[in-house]
Amino acid sequence: MAADEPAIEVVDVHRTFDVRRRAGRLRRTRQVVRAVDGLSFDVARGEMVGLLGPNGAGKSTTVKMLTGILVPTSGALRVVGLDPAAARTRLARRIGVVFGQRSGLWWDLPLRDSFALLRRIYDVPADRHAAALAEFVELLELGELMDIPVRALSLGQRMRGEIAAALLHEPELLYLDEPTIGLDVVSKGRLRDFLRTINVERGTTVVLTTHDLGDVERLCRRVLVVDHGRLVFDGSLDALRRLDGTTRTVVVDLATSSPQVEVAGAVVTRVDGPRQWLSLPSGASAAPVVAQLAAAYDVVDLAIQEPAIEDVVARLYQRG
């Protein structure tokens, strides 16, 4: 494929499901659910994109269509230059998929055996497999786990195994669906470091579906927000923060308890003894506010809080 061709192209994709509902003793009504409703976006090669959305927004449906295991009702998809549903098997050799709550490892066998089987499945030459395996074993710290049956691994250990399994055939594109679900802080951190490494060093395109905004904040420069099967936001994390209606907060500690400060361009939202909270639109600079405070009051300490990404996204969902 051409180097400038996007890794993923999605053009006006729709996907509907028929849901049968019980409506009385024997009667059943059919209802059409639009899981994906006119979705369009591109992902360039080497990008690391976060796909966000509330439950039922159509994220998983989208990922399933991108892997070719679900056919769109209408619209066009291309992944690494292939039509996913028509070329599912060929595509499978070039992409890696990790579903956080699904397992692709052999439950009763040690990790080592699963990896050996995957080499056969993906027809990876022995030397390339050995090199990739050595690298992932080191990066994911799997060395001591290789001979333990998967069923005896902890969730965090298994997850690292799943990710190695999805990457052993050195895919150009990696989908991760909720990769850090249920993991502790340390495991999450390690996994994020690893994902950043393969994105930067191997140039692997990564699409991350998650509810954990920490993943997105630490990993993705670009965010896609999906709600009701439509794209409601596409841009950088900064742009998401600066969306209309979001606010930044200046927290100021004064020398003594005092009445509400008065500063142009900001509004006091809360007072607690000597500490006061000022809110300003997220598009505005905090510098003039800080300067005024320092000039007119006896400031002991001062901090600026960016809008919590959770709040921004929650607001987007409500709007959508």
Binding site: I95, F99, R102, S103
Partner: peptide, 13 residues
């Protein structure tokens, strides 16, 4: 039933 089949179908076998 659990949807893990998605992983199996995503393999070139």
């Amino acid at each position: 039933r659990t949807g893990d089949i998605a992983v199996d179908l995503g393999r070139p076998v």
